[in-house]
Design a binder for these strands. Structure first.
Length: 580
RNA sequence: CGGGAUGUAGCGCAGCUUGGUAGCGCACUUCGCUUGGGACGAAGGGGUCGCACGUUCGAAUCGUGUCAUCCCGACCA
């Protein structure tokens, strides 16, 4: 490709609306342009990158025995009602009506469609297991898209779905996909870590996320990990706590005045005690039902864990108004800061559930609210002064410095970008959608399903997050839009142009995707653009051609070398051939 | 969905306080000059100042409303 013909407009300045580096660089280097909120045009350079990522995925998925198909982007409401997700999926589901008034949605994911395809075609255990995948655009009407391609509303995703007859078969395919994913991301030049995670709205039990660990702050997920193999998303990470003082100094229970202590900080200061002897009570609304969460006051509730503990799908903290109302209908006059679990029966037509974090179980002589304004109960004990809730489980957010649940060493935390996930779905979709096959005994059984996603566009953006410098993008060779750029310093110098053209033609002949910068620009402009766009190799033909030498530089190295043109070609050709 | 900010040329911005026929840098076109890290000079093209209504002789500027975008939070691949 001639640079003079290449459809790319580099900008001298960063776009003002971009926050993270991948967004800034992809816009500035001419890869993407925003069409509307969270929706981007993939310009020619970007599309080449995307296709490379897709092809790596295709090769590895096919190698792993999966089969590609393509499902529609627009989906009918009926299938979503079968799975129960028309109601359960929130505002992210982009709903629309056709001219006949039929309700449809833009596919945010394709479990419903694939399950319908499977139940039409897979009638016998003899046909199983099967793994089907597609690479396609998805649309999720995010409340707040951001970070450019890392979190758009429309994005390209590879989604695969496996159908089998047993948990064992599912686990085998799960491992198969795990290995395929490991190969895919490695080939894309990304270091990933597989972490345990919550399975969220998609449902199911076991799931892992593949995270790109970057030094950037742009990762959206906190990942807790240990020097042993343990790694988990913050919404799933377990931890053992360091020793702490969990027994208060009071000998007997007593109610004491604690005026205006609306926060734990105010309470610890007022009583001059550590937060570790206080039981904190938080009010949440899970699917409209009130839930009290009890936790040691120095710790934070992990909302996803709490939501899962009561089997909900949506969670938020209660408003001050709701809390007051809840107090009133249960006969208390209290407010935030003085809440306790005792005596709260029902609210809004729901029985009030109480969930305690494990941290509170062994506490003694502790401080707790009793739903009375400006006082707290101190020296309280479970079973004597306050009932220990029936549900005692892990609902806390892990913290760096907590200990690994597997090996006991201190956990570390880092930011990660989720580029892939794998779920063991089980029968979550096959059962409600009556997607069944006949087993050896002629009995109908629901498929045991798994699903496996990779964010294609996000992977490309994550590669930029992981590989860039002050001058621009440093693409891994395997997903770079072009492998090399040939730069004649002066297009008016006949010898330089001739040699540059020869090099360019040689590269093309050997299967290298090359660009020749034939623009009548100053050298500085060409170098700046080459660095910004991120061509992995650069061959510059300048004055040294008089001595038969060209300058060779790899984008990921500072090293410059003056070598013969044929040697420069050979290095690039060899590197490109090694990709295969 | 809560809080904050911003909408003026493809990109980055000034002008608004104090209303008077819209400007700068980059990019783009032409000519000259220059040619190893985003040169220089000259001459050009390009904008219903987000939109609507209002105030006014006159609105980018003042008022009301509305839409959009961005940031923080909550939520999520």
């Amino acid at each position: 490709m001639k640079m003079s013909r290449l459809f790319v407009q580099t900008l001298r300045e960063f776009p003002s609306d971009a926050e993270v580096i991948s967004h800034k660089l992809l816009v500035r280097a001419g890869y993407i342009r925003k069409l509307t909120m969270g929706v981007y045009n993939y310009l020619p350079l970007m599309w080449r990158v995307i296709r490379k990522v897709e092809n790596i995925i295709r090769e590895e998925m096919d190698r792993a025995g999966a089969q590609e198909l393509l499902m529609p982007f627009v989906q009918p409401k009926e299938l979503w009602e079968e799975s129960g997700r028309w109601g359960a999926y929130g505002g992210e589901l982009m709903r629309l009506k056709d001219r006949h008034g039929r309700e449809m949605c833009l596919g945010p994911t394709h479990e419903e469609i694939i399950t319908a395809i499977a139940r039409d075609g897979l009638k016998s255990y003899k046909q199983l297991p099967v793994n089907l995948y597609q690479i396609q655009s998805k649309f999720r009407d995010e409340r707040r898209p951001r970070f450019g391609l890392l979190r758009g509303r429309e994005f390209i995703m590879k989604d695969a779905y496996s159908f089998g007859t047993s948990q064992e078969e599912l686990e085998k395919e799960y491992k198969n996909m795990w290995e395929a994913y490991t190969r895919i991301f490695k080939r894309c030049g990304l270091d990933t870590k597989a972490v345990q995670s919550d399975s969220g709205a998609i449902g199911g039990s076991v799931s892992h996320e593949f995270m790109v660990i970057t030094d950037q702050d742009s990762g959206e997920n906190d990942v807790f990990y240990c020097e042993c193999d343990y790694a988990a998303n913050s919404n799933h990470a377990e931890s053992k706590l360091p020793d702490a003082k969990i027994t208060g100094d009071w000998q007997e229970p007593q109610i004491i005045d604690t005026p205006n202590t609306h926060s734990i900080d105010e309470l610890t200061e007022f009583l001059n005690i550590p937060a570790t002897v206080i039981v904190k009570t938080l009010v949440y609304i899970v699917d409209k039902a009130p839930v009290l969460a009890l936790i040691r006051a120095d710790r934070t509730v992990e909302e996803t864990k709490l939501m899962n503990a009561v089997g909900g799908t949506d969670i938020r903290i209660a408003t001050a108004g709701e809390i007051e109302e809840m107090m009133a209908v249960n006969g208390f006059d209290s407010e935030k800061g003085f809440i306790g679990p005792q005596g709260l029966k029902e609210y809004n037509g729901f029985k009030i559930k109480v969930v305690a974090d494990e941290t509170v179980k062994d506490m003694k002589n502790f401080v707790i609210g009793i739903n009375k304004k400006d006082v707290h109960l101190v020296g309280a004990n479970w079973g004597v002064d306050v009932d220990l809730p029936e549900t005692v489980t892990d609902i806390r957010l892990a913290e760096a410095g907590d200990f690994c649940p597997v090996c006991g060493k201190p956990l570390k935390v880092t930011r990660g970008i989720e580029v892939g996930n794998i779920f063991q779905l089980g029968t979550k979709y096959s059962k409600p959608m009556n997607a069944v096959y006949l087993d050896q005994n002629g009995k109908t059984q629901p498929y045991i399903m798994g699903c496996y996603g990779i964010g294609v566009t996000r992977t490309a953006a994550a590669a930029v997050e992981a590989h860039h410098d002050d001058h621009g993008i440093i693409w891994p060779l395997a997903i770079a839009p072009y492998h090399a750029v040939v730069i004649p310093v002066s297009t008016k110098d006949e010898l330089q142009m001739k040699v540059a053209n020869d090099i360019y033609q040689t590269l093309l002949k050997h299967g290298v995707e090359a660009v020749i910068d034939d623009r009548d620009e100053r050298a500085g402009v060409k170098f700046k653009d080459a660095d910004l766009i991120g061509f992995p190799y650069r061959i510059t033909v300048g004055k040294t051609i008089a001595d038969g030498l060209v300058e060779f530089k790899a984008r990921n190295s500072e090293e410059l070398s003056n070598i013969k043109p044929e040697n420069a070609c050979e290095i690039v050709v060899t590197a490109v051939n090694n990709l295969k």
